[in-house]
Amino acid sequence: MTEVFWGSVLSALSTGAGALIILFIQQSITHRWKDVLLAFSAGIMMSASTVGLIPEALKTGGFGPLFVGVCLGVWALTLMEKNIPHIDLQHNKKGIQFDEKALLIISAITLHNIPEGLSVGVSYASEQGDTGNLIALAIGFQNAPEGLLVALFLLNQRISKLKAFIIATLTGAIEIITSLLGYFLTTYVQGLVPYGLSFAAGAMLFIIYKELIPESHGDGNERVSTYAFILGLLVMVYIIDIFS
């Protein structure tokens, strides 16, 4: 219980770690660097899902639960995307006032963190103890550039650096709650672990292909983003190899 709590806290607070950068920079980072960070995060999450979550789900439940869980994860993210407005923070060059629309954007970003928290929680419920740490690390890598991008967006809306940092950090806090929820569900409902792991993998794959990869290719930086994706994938494979 202690491990899953601190794992979820560190993963969630990685959003704030990324946002912390805005307190020390004098101007916004380039689209090129934003795309590189997103692509690197996508590579990290791809390794975590395909090398970490999916093999563990197959080991604990077989192909049936894996298929059902992945489909449920994709379905859940599809429903969320249809009902939660998606705002392109990286490529929106027109400023807007910090009004109802900006609040809607912050709410949407917060809600999109729900499946990431669930991914961490169900991973800690696995019999393979290192799986939870690996997924928490992968989600943390993804949260850091996301926190930076949210903070930069708020900064462009004439919000102070400190307030932008605090708000961006809070958008990731919901992951702590959903992580604990995912852990308790898969721990106390017998046979749910492989479904939970597969659900997390499906949700992560959806985020990678639908969100991170397209976002990282939005400003003509396809080649460098591809390199960053491959580097992120290899870094996470190396980390998994060390833990296993």
Score class of each variant (00 low, 15 high):
L162P: 06
K163I: 08
K163D: 08
A164T: 01
A164I: 02
F165E: 03
F165V: 03
I166L: 14
I166V: 14
T169G: 11
T169W: 01
T169M: 13
L170W: 04
L170M: 12
L170V: 07
T171V: 14
G172Q: 06
G172W: 05
A173S: 14
A173K: 00
I174V: 12
E175R: 01
I176L: 08
I176R: 04
T178A: 05
S179N: 10
S179H: 08
L180M: 15
L181T: 09
L181K: 04
L181N: 02
L181Q: 02
G182M: 07
G182K: 07
F184C: 07
L185G: 01
L185E: 09
T186A: 15
T186M: 15
T187A: 13
T187F: 12
Y188S: 02
Y188D: 01
V189C: 00
V189G: 00
V189D: 03
Q190C: 03
Q190L: 11
L192M: 14
L192D: 10
L192Q: 05
P194S: 02
P194A: 00
Y195K: 04
Y195W: 07
G196D: 12
L197N: 04
L197P: 08
S198Y: 08
S198E: 10
A200Y: 10
A200R: 05
A201M: 11
M204Q: 01
L205S: 05
F206M: 06
F206G: 01
F206W: 14
I207S: 13
I208W: 08
Y209Q: 11
Y209W: 13
K210A: 15
K210T: 15
E211S: 13
L212C: 03
